[in-house]
Amino acid sequence: MRTMTAPRTRPLRDPAPSKWGYRWQRWMLTPGVRTGLRIGVPTLVLALAAGAWASNDTNRAMIIGRYDQLKAAIQHRPEFMVAGLAITGADEELASTVTELVPVKFPISSFDLDLEAMRAKVAGLAAVKDVYVRVGDAGALEIGITPRQPVALWRTAEGLRLIDSEGVFAGNVAQRAERRDLPLIAGEGAEDNIDEALALFRSAAPIAERVRGLVRIGNRRWDMVLDRDQRIQLPSEGPVAALDRVIGLEQSQDLLARDVALVDVRNPNRPTVRLQRDAVAATRNAVTTGANN
């Protein structure tokens, strides 16, 4: 005979969720809520804890101090240190000026160097055409300078100045004697026509001993000034060719060695020569006395 194993009938259990329990469970199963609980709540707790800890001033100061310390420790590693200054491409005078201009106490961390400002400062010097500033090999602060090459002296109301081939101011000179090697120019607009002036000086090489300089007249044409107050007035068009003719005359007939005050070749068709005042009188005397005959 078989028996019922559990014949007892208890009151029926109907485990049903309450309406709010059901809603709560559904809410908790919503994907957004699940994600929020999994990620948002831990994040929030961490953020709150961190905020509470950081709200204490000493803690914040400690963090900042620790940070600065760490930063300094890294920045002052020997790999980042700059030990010396190496200036290339400058003469001694310029180098000493630049050294004064760059006030750096070595050794210094390369993080503390403001290379841009340094470069701007050095590039501001008149004698410097171009410059690069970098932290190079072996911890040296390299300043590579391309100096301006002065090609002429320019006499202005303020004094003598050096100018380079682009007509840019490249320094001051106290006396003409300091730079005998450079030709002298003067007059309004002389610095803008430096190429022409240099060509004229090259053409005047045979009489270079006697040339004192070039004067720009009316910002239009050149006068070449020689010693003994001689002057060659050149045209605004084709001055080099005109000068060549004068040089030719000088070489063939010793024109300039004579008592000539002015050679005017402004009009190429009608070159004119003015004699010295005394020469005029002497010539006249000679004619009357017939000395030459």
Binding site: M1, R2, T3, M4, P7, R8, T9, L12
Partner: peptide, 30 residues
């Protein structure tokens, strides 16, 4: 009813055989 449901699912059938006369089920009326 619950007991009846239980008896039905455990021992229910529609074709009686001779064996079924001897198989006694304790129904536990409770």
């Amino acid at each position: 009813m619950q007991t009846a449901e239980r008896i039905k699912t455990f021992y229910g059938g529609v074709m009686a055989t001779g064996m079924d006369d001897r198989e006694m089920i304790e129904i536990g009326g409770d």
